[in-house]
C-alpha cells in the first residue's frame, strides 16, 4: 500500500459518504443519475464477490463490503425512499450501450479465461465508463448542486490517484496491470471537462453552470 492508493481509496469512500449526505440532508436524489448508480452496483458486485473466497486483508475486505452495501443502499434510496425526487426523463443515457461492449472487451482482454477473471475485467471496463450517464445528465441540465459536484470531484480524484500509484508500483515492484491502467486512464480522462469547470467555478465559490 502506498499513499497514492490509500488517498485514492479514501477519496472513493468520501465520494460515497458525500452522496449519502446529499441525499439524506436534501431528502432528494435530484441531479443524480440512477443509471450510473445501478452501473456501480454491477461493477462492485462483479468485482468484489471474491471477498467470499479470496482473503487479502481486513482493509480490503471492509472496503469491498462497504462499496457493495452502500451502492445497493443508494439504489434503495433512489428507487424507494426518495423515489418521487428522481426524474427518469432526464436520465436518458442508454446504459446497455456501455454494458454490451464491456462484456465483449472482457471476453477478449482478461488475465485468464475463467469466470471470475472475465468478471473482473468486465467490472474494470464498466467502471471506467459508468459515470457517463451522470455526466450526460449534467450536460443536459447544464447545472448542478454544489454538493453533487463535490461528490463527482471526489469520485474522479479516486481513479486519478490510482495513476501515480501504478507508476509507483511499476518502479517499486516491477509489475504492471495493463487492463486496470488503460481503463483507469480512460476513466480519469472522462472527468477532464468536469474538473475544468469544478476548479474554475465551484472552487471559486460560483455555481456549477455550463455555458449555454
Amino acid at each position: 500500500m502506498n499513499l497514492f492508493r490509500l488517498f485514492g481509496d479514501l477519496s472513493h469512500l468520501a465520494s460515497i459518504l458525500i452522496l449519502l449526505h446529499k441525499i439524506q440532508t436534501t431528502r432528494s436524489c435530484r441531479g443524480i443519475s440512477f443509471k450510473t448508480q445501478a452501473l456501480y452496483v454491477t461493477v462492485f458486485v462483479a468485482r468484489y464477490l471474491d471477498l467470499f473466497y479470496d482473503w487479502v486483508s481486513l482493509y480490503n475486505f471492509s472496503m469491498k463490503v462497504f462499496f457493495i452495501s452502500s451502492s445497493i443502499y443508494i439504489l434503495y434510496l433512489m428507487k424507494v425512499r426518495f423515489r418521487p425526487t428522481h426524474d427518469p426523463s432526464i436520465d436518458t443515457f442508454r446504459a446497455e450501450y456501455l454494458v454490451g461492449p464491456c462484456v465483449v472487451l472482457a471476453l477478449i482482454f482478461n488475465y485468464k479465461f475463467t469466470f471470475p477473471e472475465v468478471l473482473w475485467s468486465f467490472s474494470i471496463f464498466l467502471e471506467s465508463v459508468a459515470i457517463l450517464p451522470q455526466l450526460f445528465m449534467l450536460q443536459r441540465t447544464g447545472e448542478a448542486e454544489t454538493i453533487t459536484t463535490h461528490y463527482l470531484a471526489a469520485l474522479g480524484a479516486y481513479r486519478a490517484l490510482y495513476i501515480p500509484n501504478w507508476i509507483y508500483r511499476y518502479f517499486s515492484e516491477g509489475v504492471v496491470d495493463p487492463i486496470a491502467v488503460i481503463a483507469g486512464l480512460v476513466q480519469t480522462a472522462l472527468y477532464v471537462d468536469f474538473f475544468y469547470v469544478y476548479f474554475t467555478k465551484v472552487l471559486q465559490g460560483q455555481k456549477f453552470e455550463l455555458p449555454a
Binding site: M1, R5, D9, H12, D54, V56, S57, N60, M63, K64, F67, Y111, E117, W120, Y162, R169, G174, V175, V176, D177, P178, I179, A180
Partner: peptide
C-alpha cells in the same frame, strides 16, 4: 516482473 492483475487493489 511483468504484467499481472494487482489482486490487492480495489
Amino acid at each position: 516482473q511483468g504484467t499481472a492483475r494487482a489482486k490487492d487493489e480495489l
